[in-house]
C-alpha cells in the first residue's frame, strides 16, 4: 500500500518548477486519480451532492476510526459518509465550513507528521495518533457528532444501512414490546413483588 502513496509534499515538490495556481488546480484530477488507485479510495465515482469526492474519501476514513469496523459493523458499513453528504446539504453550511477548514488542517498535520498528503492514506496507528491530537477541536466534535448521527439515524437519511448501527448496541427498532422487558422486571414478576 505504501508504494502507492502520493504525499502532498512530494506532489508539490514535483511542481516546484511550475508557476501559477492554475497548474496546481489542473493537477488535482491527477491527484484524485492517484487516490482512486489506492485501496482505500473505494468511494471514488460515488455521486455526492454536498461534499466533494476528496472530502468523502477523507471523512470516510476519519469516521471509520471514530466508529471502527470490528466484529460488528462500523461507520463505513453504516454509510456514515452518505448521511453526512445528505444532512450537510440541509442548511448546515456552518458545519460544512468547520469540516472543510478542519480537514485542511488535518491534512497539513498528516504532511508534517508523516509526510503524507491525505489522512486516508495513513495506516490505522497513524490515523489514531492524528485524531487524538485534534480530539478537542470543533472539527472533531462536528465530525464525531455526524458520525454518531449517521450511525444511529433512520436509514432514510443515508446512514445506518440495514440498521447495522442499531445492531451494534443491541437496539431493536421494533414497533411494539411486551413484558418482560429485561432481567429486572422479569425477576420482579417472578418474585411477586
Amino acid at each position: 500500500m505504501q508504494k502507492e502513496l502520493l504525499s502532498r509534499r512530494a506532489f508539490f515538490n514535483s511542481l516546484k518548477d511550475a508557476t501559477g495556481k492554475s497548474v496546481i488546480l489542473l493537477s488535482m484530477p491527477a491527484l484524485l486519480h492517484a487516490c482512486r488507485e489506492s485501496r482505500q479510495a473505494r468511494l471514488a465515482g460515488e455521486d455526492f451532492q454536498t461534499i466533494t469526492e476528496e472530502e468523502a474519501i477523507e471523512f470516510d476514513a476519519i469516521t471509520a476510526r471514530i466508529i471502527p469496523t470490528t466484529e460488528t459493523a462500523g461507520a463505513r458499513e453504516a454509510g456514515v459518509v452518505f448521511f453526512m453528504d445528505a444532512v450537510l446539504g440541509d442548511s448546515r453550511e456552518e458545519q460544512h465550513a468547520i469540516l472543510k477548514d478542519g480537514l485542511r488542517e488535518l491534512q497539513s498535520a498528516a504532511v508534517q507528521e508523516f509526510d503524507v498528503a491525505y489522512f486516508h492514506l495513513l495506516d490505522a496507528r497513524q490515523q489514531d495518533q492524528l485524531i487524538e491530537s485534534i480530539s478537542d477541536t470543533s472539527f472533531f466534535f462536528t465530525l464525531r457528532y455526524l458520525t454518531i448521527a449517521g450511525m444511529f439515524s433512520l436509514p432514510e437519511y443515508g446512514g445506518n444501512r440495514d440498521f447495522v448501527g442499531y445492531d451494534v448496541i443491541g437496539y431493536q427498532n421494533r414497533g411494539a414490546w411486551t413484558q418482560p422487558y429485561s432481567f429486572y422486571d422479569a425477576d420482579f414478576t417472578e418474585r411477586g413483588e
Partner: peptide, 13 residues
C-alpha cells in the same frame, strides 16, 4: 471514539 467507545456502547445502552 474508537473501538473501546463502540464496545462500551454495546453494553451501556
Amino acid at each position: 471514539w474508537g473501538a473501546e467507545f463502540k464496545e462500551n456502547l454495546a453494553f451501556q445502552f
